[in-house]
């Protein structure tokens, strides 16, 4: 059973007075453990596709299956649970809750899952050590660099052992060196823990790192290459 399967997925939305056909029928299947990038120019629909896969948005037509569940028309409450237990998110920037420390940010999703405080504290510390932020775990986001903040975001995304991590242009605000280290980290996690990663990006370096590159153009899949 594929981890993600979309069929004839369409999304239209109103931008001012104009209807935009953001996705025009996407059929894509992603298996557990993939390290895939969805690439394309601005407006090609990559973020929209990621949002639909992540249950953050609803499709105009077509379907999305995640880990066997049809999430296309799922109620908000159920989608919330799916996002909490099966998906990790890494956004472009301003990812973290600024009033919490790095450790508390990582603990946050575990808290939402109802994980006991001692356990989540230990797991957060452990994962922050793994991403190289053991010494900075008590700092708040404004005291961390952009790269460190994204590492915390990755730690928060994987600490609950999700089926999939969706990363929306995770390197967009990072210099190439920091971006490269972040990608190394994510690939390591992918290889060691079999966490599925899907990126939306227009960063060539991310495309280079990915093992599967899905190119979108005008809301359609232009190419789908496995390396």
């Amino acid at each position: 059973m594929p981890l993600i399967q979309t069929q004839a997925l369409k999304k239209d939305y109103l931008d001012g007075k104009t209807w935009v056909n953001a996705l025009r029928g996407i059929d894509v299947t992603i298996e557990q453990g993939e390290f895939a990038a969805i690439a394309g120019p601005s407006g090609s629909g990559k973020t929209t596709l990621l949002n639909l896969i992540g249950g953050l948005d609803t499709a105009t037509s077509g379907s999305v299956h995640l880990d066997g569940d049809d999430i296309t028309n799922m109620r908000s409450r159920h989608l919330n649970k799916i996002r909490l237990h099966k998906i990790g998110f890494v956004f472009q920037a301003y990812n973290l809750i600024p009033v919490l420390t790095a450790q508390e940010n990582v603990e946050f999703t575990m808290m939402l899952q109802g994980c006991p405080a001692p356990e989540r504290r230990a797991r957060a510390a452990e994962i922050l050590e793994q991403v190289g932020l053991g010494e900075n775990m008590h700092r708040r986001p404004p005291a961390l660099s952009g790269g460190q903040q994204q590492r915390v975001a990755v730690a928060r995304a994987i600490v609950t052992h999700p089926k999939i991590v969706l990363a929306d242009e995770p390197t967009a605000n990072l210099d190439s060196g920091t971006g490269s280290k972040l990608l190394d980290l994510m690939r390591e996690l992918n290889e060691q823990k079999n966490v599925t990663f899907i990126f939306s990006t227009h960063d060539p370096m991310v495309m280079e790192y990915s093992r599967r590159l899905i190119r979108l153009q005008d809301g359609k899949i232009k190419t789908d290459e496995r390396k």
Binding site: G54, R83, Y94, P98, L112, Q113, A157
Partner: peptide
């Protein structure tokens, strides 16, 4: 934005 992130990572409305 921050509220959007919290909702995305699974924070429910009641919380």
């Amino acid at each position: 934005h921050e509220i959007g992130v919290m909702r995305a990572i699974g924070m429910n409305r009641l919380r």
